[in-house]
Amino acid sequence: MPPTKKNSPAGKRNPGLAGELEQPGSNFRQVRYVLRLYVSGSTSKSALAVENIKRICEQHLKNRYDLEVIDIYQQPNLARDEQIVAVPTLVKRFPLPPRRLIGDMSNLEKVLLGLDLGRRE
């Protein structure tokens, strides 16, 4: 997977360790989440997905996530590089293993499961 040249937060590598240091209050799972949400323009599904993931992150990953929203209409190359087919797609790049979630993120349970946050519920 080629690195993005853009000035995105994901461009800063290895945020995991820093995240741990920044979050001394957390007992475990001190890793920093690096998430990318690929949407297409301003469709209702895309808007809903952005809204949902932001809320979930704020609730469950406060202060330890980087979320980048990418509009593939404007960056078709990124869709190609990331092998985006379905939209919206959420890519969890970190922590490993990488995982993809598709859909408008309205099924909270599945989103948390996909992000390995299920046990917190």
């Binding site: 690929y38 297409s40 323009g41 469709t43 599904k45 809903l48 997905a49 949902n52 593939i72 209409y73 078709p76 869709a79 190609r80 985006i84 087919v85 379905a86 939209v87 919206p88 797609t89 959420l90 990488p98 995982r99 993809r100 979630l101 598709i102 859909g103 408008d104 993120m105 309205s106 099924n107 599945k110 989103v111 499961l113 996909g114």
Partner: peptide, 16 residues
């Protein structure tokens, strides 16, 4: 790799 969290479409493919 996939988990389905709600409605989606194939705009990714179409845009490509």
């Amino acid at each position: 790799e996939f988990g389905e969290t709600g409605e989606y479409d194939l705009d990714g493919l179409f845009i490509r």
